[in-house]
Protein backbone atom coordinates (compact mmCIF):
# COMPACT_ATOMS: atom_id res chain seq x y z
CA UNK A 1 0.00 0.00 0.00
CA UNK A 2 2.78 2.43 0.72
CA UNK A 3 4.90 1.39 -2.26
CA UNK A 4 6.28 4.37 -4.02
CA UNK A 5 5.37 4.66 -7.67
CA UNK A 6 8.43 6.87 -7.91
CA UNK A 7 10.76 4.01 -7.30
CA UNK A 8 9.22 1.12 -9.20
CA UNK A 9 11.55 1.53 -12.11
CA UNK A 10 12.27 -1.54 -14.19
CA UNK A 11 15.04 -3.31 -12.42
CA UNK A 12 17.98 -3.43 -14.70
CA UNK A 13 21.49 -4.49 -13.84
CA UNK A 14 22.82 -0.97 -14.24
CA UNK A 15 20.45 0.97 -12.07
CA UNK A 16 20.28 4.41 -13.59
CA UNK A 17 22.13 6.12 -16.38
CA UNK A 18 25.81 5.87 -15.71
CA UNK A 19 28.52 7.26 -17.99
CA UNK A 20 31.22 4.83 -18.91
CA UNK A 21 34.30 4.56 -16.73
CA UNK A 22 36.50 6.87 -18.80
CA UNK A 23 33.85 9.54 -18.94
CA UNK A 24 33.28 9.21 -15.21
CA UNK A 25 36.96 9.60 -14.46
CA UNK A 26 37.18 12.60 -16.77
CA UNK A 27 34.25 14.25 -15.04
CA UNK A 28 35.83 13.52 -11.68
CA UNK A 29 39.17 15.01 -12.73
CA UNK A 30 37.55 18.04 -14.32
CA UNK A 31 35.67 18.70 -11.15
CA UNK A 32 38.83 19.81 -9.44
CA UNK A 33 39.18 22.61 -11.97
CA UNK A 34 35.85 24.16 -10.98
CA UNK A 35 37.16 26.71 -8.44
CA UNK A 36 39.50 28.08 -11.11
CA UNK A 37 36.63 28.38 -13.58
CA UNK A 38 34.31 30.16 -11.17
CA UNK A 39 35.75 33.45 -10.06
CA UNK A 40 33.02 34.29 -7.63
CA UNK A 41 33.24 32.67 -4.24
CA UNK A 42 29.47 33.02 -3.95
CA UNK A 43 28.66 30.62 -6.80
CA UNK A 44 31.20 28.16 -5.48
CA UNK A 45 29.72 28.24 -1.99
CA UNK A 46 26.28 27.52 -3.46
CA UNK A 47 27.78 24.55 -5.29
CA UNK A 48 29.33 23.39 -2.04
CA UNK A 49 25.99 23.55 -0.24
CA UNK A 50 24.38 21.86 -3.20
CA UNK A 51 26.78 18.96 -3.15
CA UNK A 52 26.34 18.54 0.60
CA UNK A 53 22.60 18.38 0.11
CA UNK A 54 23.23 16.06 -2.81
CA UNK A 55 25.16 13.63 -0.64
CA UNK A 56 22.27 13.53 1.82
CA UNK A 57 19.87 13.10 -1.07
CA UNK A 58 21.95 10.18 -2.35
CA UNK A 59 21.54 8.42 0.96
CA UNK A 60 17.78 8.92 0.89
CA UNK A 61 17.47 7.89 -2.75
CA UNK A 62 19.57 4.80 -2.17
CA UNK A 63 17.42 3.60 0.69
CA UNK A 64 14.21 4.36 -1.16
CA UNK A 65 15.17 2.74 -4.43
CA UNK A 66 16.88 -0.33 -3.02
CA UNK A 67 14.73 -0.99 0.03
CA UNK A 68 11.56 1.02 -0.35
CA UNK A 69 12.23 2.72 2.99
CA UNK A 70 11.59 6.46 3.36
CA UNK A 71 14.30 7.88 5.59
CA UNK A 72 12.39 11.01 6.42
CA UNK A 73 14.55 11.80 9.42
CA UNK A 74 17.96 11.62 7.77
CA UNK A 75 18.90 14.79 9.66
CA UNK A 76 19.28 12.60 12.77
CA UNK A 77 22.41 11.01 11.37
CA UNK A 78 23.58 14.16 9.64
CA UNK A 79 23.52 15.96 12.96
CA UNK A 80 25.21 13.09 14.79
CA UNK A 81 28.09 13.30 12.32
CA UNK A 82 28.37 17.06 12.68
CA UNK A 83 28.01 17.20 16.45
CA UNK A 84 30.19 14.11 16.81
CA UNK A 85 32.98 15.90 15.06
CA UNK A 86 32.51 19.10 17.05
CA UNK A 87 32.39 17.32 20.40
CA UNK A 88 35.32 15.01 19.64
CA UNK A 89 37.53 17.94 18.73
CA UNK A 90 36.43 20.18 21.59
CA UNK A 91 35.68 17.97 24.58
CA UNK A 92 37.75 15.07 23.30
CA UNK A 93 40.63 17.22 22.11
CA UNK A 94 41.24 15.00 19.12
CA UNK A 95 43.03 16.40 16.09
CA UNK A 96 41.06 16.98 12.90
CA UNK A 97 41.45 13.87 10.78
CA UNK A 98 41.06 11.23 13.53
CA UNK A 99 38.05 13.13 14.85
CA UNK A 100 36.45 13.17 11.43
CA UNK A 101 36.98 9.46 10.89
CA UNK A 102 35.82 8.58 14.39
CA UNK A 103 32.73 10.77 14.04
CA UNK A 104 31.75 8.97 10.84
CA UNK A 105 32.39 5.60 12.46
CA UNK A 106 30.28 6.55 15.48
CA UNK A 107 27.52 7.69 13.17
CA UNK A 108 27.70 4.38 11.38
CA UNK A 109 27.47 2.50 14.68
CA UNK A 110 24.56 4.70 15.76
CA UNK A 111 22.66 4.05 12.54
CA UNK A 112 23.36 0.34 12.90
CA UNK A 113 21.83 0.34 16.37
CA UNK A 114 18.82 2.37 15.33
CA UNK A 115 18.37 0.28 12.20
CA UNK A 116 18.55 -2.96 14.16
CA UNK A 117 15.42 -1.87 15.98
CA UNK A 118 13.40 -0.13 13.29
CA UNK A 119 14.24 -1.73 9.95
CA UNK A 120 11.54 -4.32 10.50
CA UNK A 121 8.75 -1.90 11.39
CA UNK A 122 5.89 -0.83 9.13
CA UNK A 123 6.72 1.89 6.58
CA UNK A 124 4.83 4.67 8.35
CA UNK A 125 6.17 3.77 11.77
CA UNK A 126 9.65 3.69 10.26
CA UNK A 127 9.23 7.19 8.82
CA UNK A 128 7.81 8.60 12.03
CA UNK A 129 10.48 7.12 14.26
CA UNK A 130 13.29 8.56 12.16
CA UNK A 131 11.54 11.93 12.19
CA UNK A 132 10.94 11.75 15.92
CA UNK A 133 14.57 10.78 16.48
CA UNK A 134 15.66 13.93 14.69
CA UNK A 135 13.38 16.12 16.77
CA UNK A 136 14.49 14.33 19.93
CA UNK A 137 18.15 14.98 19.15
CA UNK A 138 17.36 18.58 18.26
CA UNK A 139 15.85 19.10 21.68
CA UNK A 140 18.62 17.16 23.39
CA UNK A 141 21.26 19.44 21.91
CA UNK A 142 19.22 22.50 22.89
CA UNK A 143 18.40 21.83 26.51
CA UNK A 144 20.34 23.72 29.15
CA UNK A 145 21.12 20.55 31.12
CA UNK A 146 23.61 19.41 28.51
CA UNK A 147 25.13 22.82 27.85
CA UNK A 148 28.48 21.64 29.10
CA UNK A 149 28.88 19.35 26.11
CA UNK A 150 26.60 20.74 23.46
CA UNK A 151 26.51 24.44 24.28
CA UNK A 152 22.72 24.33 23.99
CA UNK A 153 20.86 26.54 21.56
CA UNK A 154 23.93 28.65 20.91
CA UNK A 155 25.56 25.82 19.07
CA UNK A 156 29.26 25.00 18.96
CA UNK A 157 32.10 26.55 17.06
CA UNK A 158 34.18 23.92 15.34
CA UNK A 159 37.85 24.14 16.12
CA UNK A 160 40.48 21.47 15.84
CA UNK A 161 44.20 21.28 16.32
CA UNK A 162 46.55 20.39 13.56
CA UNK A 163 45.61 19.95 9.94
CA UNK A 164 43.51 17.78 7.69
CA UNK A 165 45.56 17.08 4.57
CA UNK A 166 47.51 20.25 5.13
CA UNK A 167 44.56 22.54 5.81
CA UNK A 168 43.84 24.13 9.15
CA UNK A 169 40.37 24.60 10.56
CA UNK A 170 39.81 28.13 9.26
CA UNK A 171 41.01 27.22 5.78
CA UNK A 172 37.89 25.16 5.29
CA UNK A 173 35.72 28.24 5.49
CA UNK A 174 37.10 29.20 2.08
CA UNK A 175 34.82 27.64 -0.54
CA UNK A 176 37.74 26.96 -2.88
CA UNK A 177 39.49 24.89 -0.22
CA UNK A 178 36.34 23.03 0.76
CA UNK A 179 35.31 22.19 -2.79
CA UNK A 180 37.75 19.33 -3.52
CA UNK A 181 36.73 17.65 -0.27
CA UNK A 182 33.01 17.78 -0.93
CA UNK A 183 33.51 16.93 -4.62
CA UNK A 184 35.54 13.85 -3.76
CA UNK A 185 33.02 12.86 -1.10
CA UNK A 186 30.12 13.26 -3.51
CA UNK A 187 31.82 11.28 -6.27
CA UNK A 188 33.02 8.65 -3.84
CA UNK A 189 29.57 8.27 -2.33
CA UNK A 190 28.04 8.07 -5.77
CA UNK A 191 30.50 5.40 -6.79
CA UNK A 192 29.83 3.41 -3.63
CA UNK A 193 26.08 3.59 -4.21
CA UNK A 194 26.51 2.47 -7.79
CA UNK A 195 28.72 -0.45 -6.81
CA UNK A 196 26.28 -1.65 -4.15
CA UNK A 197 23.28 -1.18 -6.41
CA UNK A 198 24.82 -3.29 -9.15
CA UNK A 199 26.16 -5.95 -6.85
CA UNK A 200 24.46 -9.04 -5.56
CA UNK A 201 23.54 -7.08 -2.45
CA UNK A 202 21.69 -4.49 -4.51
CA UNK A 203 19.84 -7.13 -6.51
CA UNK A 204 18.94 -8.90 -3.30
CA UNK A 205 17.67 -5.69 -1.71
CA UNK A 206 15.48 -4.83 -4.67
CA UNK A 207 14.06 -8.33 -4.78
CA UNK A 208 13.29 -8.12 -1.06
CA UNK A 209 11.54 -4.84 -1.75
CA UNK A 210 9.37 -6.63 -4.31
CA UNK A 211 8.50 -9.70 -2.33
CA UNK A 212 10.08 -10.16 1.07
CA UNK A 213 8.22 -13.32 1.96
CA UNK A 214 9.18 -15.14 -1.21
CA UNK A 215 12.80 -14.18 -0.69
CA UNK A 216 12.76 -15.91 2.67
CA UNK A 217 11.23 -18.96 1.08
CA UNK A 218 14.00 -18.90 -1.49
CA UNK A 219 16.60 -19.04 1.23
CA UNK A 220 17.45 -15.36 1.67
CA UNK A 221 17.76 -13.70 5.04
CA UNK A 222 15.91 -10.40 4.74
CA UNK A 223 16.84 -8.60 7.92
CA UNK A 224 20.60 -8.25 7.66
CA UNK A 225 20.78 -6.88 4.10
CA UNK A 226 18.29 -4.15 4.92
CA UNK A 227 20.04 -3.35 8.17
CA UNK A 228 23.32 -2.95 6.31
CA UNK A 229 21.69 -0.72 3.70
CA UNK A 230 20.24 1.43 6.44
CA UNK A 231 23.60 1.71 8.20
CA UNK A 232 25.19 2.69 4.92
CA UNK A 233 22.64 5.45 4.37
CA UNK A 234 23.14 6.68 7.93
CA UNK A 235 26.91 6.68 7.53
CA UNK A 236 26.63 8.70 4.34
CA UNK A 237 24.57 11.24 6.22
CA UNK A 238 27.30 11.25 8.86
CA UNK A 239 29.92 12.03 6.23
CA UNK A 240 27.81 14.94 5.04
CA UNK A 241 27.48 16.08 8.64
CA UNK A 242 31.23 16.15 9.24
CA UNK A 243 31.71 18.04 6.00
CA UNK A 244 29.03 20.53 7.00
CA UNK A 245 30.80 21.14 10.30
CA UNK A 246 34.02 21.82 8.42
CA UNK A 247 32.45 24.09 5.82
CA UNK A 248 30.57 26.34 8.19
CA UNK A 249 32.82 26.02 11.20
CA UNK A 250 29.71 25.79 13.31
CA UNK A 251 27.09 23.30 14.46
CA UNK A 252 23.67 24.06 15.89
CA UNK A 253 20.59 22.06 16.90
CA UNK A 254 18.85 23.09 13.68
CA UNK A 255 20.98 20.53 11.86
CA UNK A 256 18.68 17.87 13.33
CA UNK A 257 15.53 19.70 12.35
CA UNK A 258 12.59 18.96 10.14
CA UNK A 259 13.69 21.56 7.60
CA UNK A 260 16.99 19.79 6.98
CA UNK A 261 15.30 16.42 6.56
CA UNK A 262 12.63 17.83 4.29
CA UNK A 263 15.13 19.62 2.06
CA UNK A 264 17.12 16.44 1.61
CA UNK A 265 14.02 14.40 0.83
CA UNK A 266 12.78 16.96 -1.66
CA UNK A 267 16.20 17.26 -3.29
CA UNK A 268 16.21 13.48 -3.76
CA UNK A 269 12.72 13.41 -5.26
CA UNK A 270 13.39 16.45 -7.42
CA UNK A 271 16.51 14.93 -8.87
CA UNK A 272 15.04 11.49 -9.28
CA UNK A 273 15.54 8.39 -7.22
CA UNK A 274 16.69 5.82 -9.72
CA UNK A 275 20.02 7.28 -10.73
CA UNK A 276 23.24 8.43 -9.12
CA UNK A 277 23.46 11.78 -10.86
CA UNK A 278 19.84 12.58 -10.09
CA UNK A 279 19.97 13.19 -6.33
CA UNK A 280 23.26 15.08 -6.62
CA UNK A 281 21.90 17.36 -9.34
CA UNK A 282 18.70 17.66 -7.37
CA UNK A 283 20.72 18.76 -4.38
CA UNK A 284 22.52 21.43 -6.34
CA UNK A 285 19.35 22.69 -7.98
CA UNK A 286 17.46 22.73 -4.70
CA UNK A 287 20.24 24.46 -2.79
CA UNK A 288 20.56 27.11 -5.46
CA UNK A 289 16.83 27.75 -5.55
CA UNK A 290 16.58 27.78 -1.75
CA UNK A 291 19.35 30.32 -1.54
CA UNK A 292 17.65 32.49 -4.11
CA UNK A 293 14.22 32.35 -2.53
CA UNK A 294 15.46 32.25 1.01
CA UNK A 295 17.16 35.58 0.60
CA UNK A 296 13.80 37.05 -0.30
CA UNK A 297 12.08 35.34 2.60
CA UNK A 298 10.20 32.97 0.34
CA UNK A 299 11.94 29.69 1.18
CA UNK A 300 8.79 28.19 2.70
CA UNK A 301 6.66 29.20 -0.27
CA UNK A 302 9.24 27.94 -2.73
CA UNK A 303 9.59 24.59 -0.97
CA UNK A 304 5.83 24.17 -0.88
CA UNK A 305 5.34 24.95 -4.55
CA UNK A 306 8.36 22.87 -5.54
CA UNK A 307 7.01 19.80 -3.76
CA UNK A 308 3.61 20.05 -5.40
CA UNK A 309 4.97 20.72 -8.88
CA UNK A 310 7.61 18.02 -8.80
CA UNK A 311 5.35 15.31 -7.49
CA UNK A 312 2.39 16.15 -9.68
CA UNK A 313 4.21 16.92 -12.90
CA UNK A 314 7.54 15.16 -12.65
CA UNK A 315 7.19 12.05 -10.53
CA UNK A 316 10.32 10.42 -11.91
CA UNK A 317 12.35 13.46 -10.98
CA UNK A 318 13.78 16.39 -12.86
CA UNK A 319 16.71 14.52 -14.32
CA UNK A 320 14.71 11.70 -15.85
CA UNK A 321 11.97 14.04 -17.06
CA UNK A 322 14.48 16.35 -18.69
CA UNK A 323 16.24 13.33 -20.06
CA UNK A 324 13.08 12.26 -21.82
CA UNK A 325 11.94 15.70 -22.94
CA UNK A 326 15.22 17.24 -24.06
CA UNK A 327 16.25 14.73 -26.74
CA UNK A 328 12.83 15.14 -28.30
CA UNK A 329 13.06 18.91 -28.21
CA UNK A 330 16.57 18.89 -29.58
CA UNK A 331 15.54 16.57 -32.40
CA UNK A 332 12.72 18.88 -33.34
CA UNK A 333 15.02 21.88 -33.41
CA UNK A 334 17.56 20.05 -35.52
CA UNK A 335 14.89 18.82 -37.89
CA UNK A 336 13.28 22.23 -38.07
CA UNK A 337 16.60 23.86 -38.94
CA UNK A 338 17.03 21.51 -41.83
CA UNK A 339 13.48 22.00 -43.04
CA UNK A 340 13.85 25.76 -43.06
CA UNK A 341 17.01 25.53 -45.12
Amino acid sequence: MTELTISSQPLRAGSGRLPRVALALAVFALGFAVPALLDQGYLLSILNKGLLLGILALGIAFLMHQCGLVLFGIASFYGVGAYGFAILTETGGLPGLPAAILAIALCGAFSFLVGAVIVRTRPLAFMMITLALGELLRHLTSIPELRGITHGVDGMIVNFQGTILGYEVFDFLDPAVFWPFVWTAACGTGLMMWLVANSMVGRTLRAIKENEERMRFCGFGTYLPRLLAFSLAGSIAGIAGVLQALASGFVSPELFGLVTSTNALLAAITGGLASIAGPVLGGVAFAAALDEFGALGYSQLFTGIAVVVVIVAMPRGLVVTLGTILPGLLARFAGKGRDDA
Binding site: T204, A207, C218, G219
Partner: peptide, 24 residues
Protein backbone atom coordinates in the same frame (compact mmCIF):
# COMPACT_ATOMS: atom_id res chain seq x y z
CA UNK B 1 5.25 -22.80 -4.23
CA UNK B 2 2.34 -20.58 -3.31
CA UNK B 3 -1.41 -20.74 -3.71
CA UNK B 4 -1.55 -17.05 -4.55
CA UNK B 5 1.25 -16.54 -7.04
CA UNK B 6 4.21 -15.03 -5.28
CA UNK B 7 6.94 -13.98 -7.69
CA UNK B 8 8.93 -10.84 -8.47
CA UNK B 9 6.91 -8.84 -11.00
CA UNK B 10 9.59 -6.24 -11.70
CA UNK B 11 12.37 -8.72 -12.42
CA UNK B 12 12.57 -10.61 -15.67
CA UNK B 13 12.05 -14.35 -15.46
CA UNK B 14 15.74 -14.94 -16.04
CA UNK B 15 16.80 -12.42 -13.39
CA UNK B 16 14.74 -13.93 -10.62
CA UNK B 17 15.70 -17.50 -11.43
CA UNK B 18 19.37 -16.56 -11.55
CA UNK B 19 19.10 -14.62 -8.30
CA UNK B 20 17.78 -17.64 -6.42
CA UNK B 21 20.19 -19.99 -8.19
CA UNK B 22 23.09 -17.86 -7.06
CA UNK B 23 21.91 -17.97 -3.46
CA UNK B 24 21.44 -21.71 -3.41
Amino acid sequence: SFQRTSIFPGLTVREQLELVAHKL
